[in-house]
Write a protein that binds this DNA or RNA. Structure first.
Lengths: 238, 238
DNA sequence: TCCCTTATGTGTACATCGTACATTAGGTGA
DNA sequence: TCACCTAATGTACGATGTACACATAAGGGA
């Protein structure tokens, strides 16, 4: 068996590992890669670094993974195992719970929100399960299939967009060893002052001076999410 | 003058070009880089490729741009010049127009939705102007500064999330020279069939079989956006 | 006119990346 | 025991970002 792209990654994974002296396995590879990315960010993921972490030659993981793209997909599916899926709730609470769990997953694994486009689209089994769960929660409410999917994708888009921002900020902070929003703003102060001195952003400046929840990411996330869910309920009359 | 990171990119840009025999300029660099990314995607952006396009030595652009990150910021600001800002509309129509224009900008420049986290956060002048515009539209409605910003960022998150998906799909299609949603689904059919054969995704399967607007990205975008705006109006009583 | 400072672009070089390819080594069934 | 398959190795190549020392040309002061 060569690791060809024609059979899907997931198909290959289901075939029981055929053989002897298994140093490596998709599981071990995924675990090691996720550990690296969690600790040092997505840019620390290198085929060579991964191999080193597994005490194995640089090319060894290629037997299980057709390349770096495949590796990223594998990592995604691996961490989605930890996503708690809601059960026995109404559509609204299901979507809300799913969004909140996804946020938590993405806070545990900041790199999830920074994946290259291909990995973002990856149709992995566990992500399929998430979609299924969300669609099932919306089933039987009188919505057509297109609307159901659109609602799910709308919420998903909000979550990904919000977390893309939130985890970019948090990545920037840990990169520069900043530990509070104030420290971050201190770092950005010269640039910000320069912008403000142009006088072109009075409303923004007012925000900077009077806002009191600048660092309450959770509150900000909830507000947007609740607005979106309110709007879905109202507009679709469900 | 060395291109040091301590003075901000934007600060440096405002100083009039000091000198002689200007082959290069931030303008020319940005234009060339954007042309490459528009035509061949973000991964085609290479300092060497950029230099070649400008008929200049590989290291030449470094005089104007401190590195690739800086280049990306420059590109972002450059294309945001084309974003049409709404004027004289109510808060809702302003946010809606801003979202729609941003979508169009991101369709014209698919790479905008695929930027690395640092460039995504870039506080460029023209992006500051967008934020200012949105906040101004929400001013005077009785909202506190935190809520105003959160509403803006919520809409922004939705737009970025939705376009991140939409442009990842479109990037994938152009990468594989597919020109319709049907062709794309044809390409994905083996994988999808494999997933469906597990029987774990009945609702998803029902969607695949009965949906009629799978490729109407504009309709999907509008639905989510309108839900979000509805919810904002209702929840904040504005 | 000449030269000298300074902004501008060049050339070379290096570490690091993804991965192609040919090769070895270890375990199994006959 | 031996042939065979497969897991893992080793070597190598082209591409990337960018550091650093250098060449060069314009324009002003003598």
């Amino acid at each position: 068996m060569s690791t060809d792209k024609s059979t899907s990654l997931w198909e290959r994974l289901e075939r029981p590992a055929p053989a002897p002296r298994q140093l490596l396995s998709p599981q071990r590879i995924a675990t090691a890669a996720v550990a690296i990315a969690d600790a040092e960010g997505l840019e620390a993921i290198t085929m060579r670094r991964l191999a080193a972490e597994l005490s194995v030659a640089p090319m060894a993981p290629y037997r299980y993974v057709s390349g770096k793209d495949d590796l990223l997909e594998l990592m995604v599916d691996h961490v989605y195992a930890d996503l708690r899926l809601p059960d026995g709730l109404g559509w609204r609470e299901s979507l809300r719970a799913l969004a909140m769990s996804t946020r938590e997953l993405m806070l545990d694994h900041r790199w999830l929100a920074q994946l290259p486009p291909q990995a973002k689209l990856a149709l992995t089994p566990r992500r399929m399960a998430v979609a299924e769960k969300a669609l099932a929660a919306l089933d039987g409410l009188g919505l057509d299939a297109d609307t159901m999917m659109s609602v799910f994708r709308g919420v998903d888009a909000y979550v990904h967009g919000a977390m893309s921002y939130e985890s970019a900020v948090s990545a920037l902070m840990s990169e520069q060893s900043l530990s509070s929003g104030d420290e971050l703003r201190g770092e950005l102060a010269p640039l910000m002052t320069w912008h403000m001195r142009t006088g072109r952003y009075p409303t923004f400046q007012h925000y900077l001076r009077t806002a009191t929840r600048k660092d309450d990411a959770r509150w900000q996330f909830d507000l947007g999410l609740d607005c979106l869910l309110d709007g879905i309920a109202a507009r679709l009359d469900i």
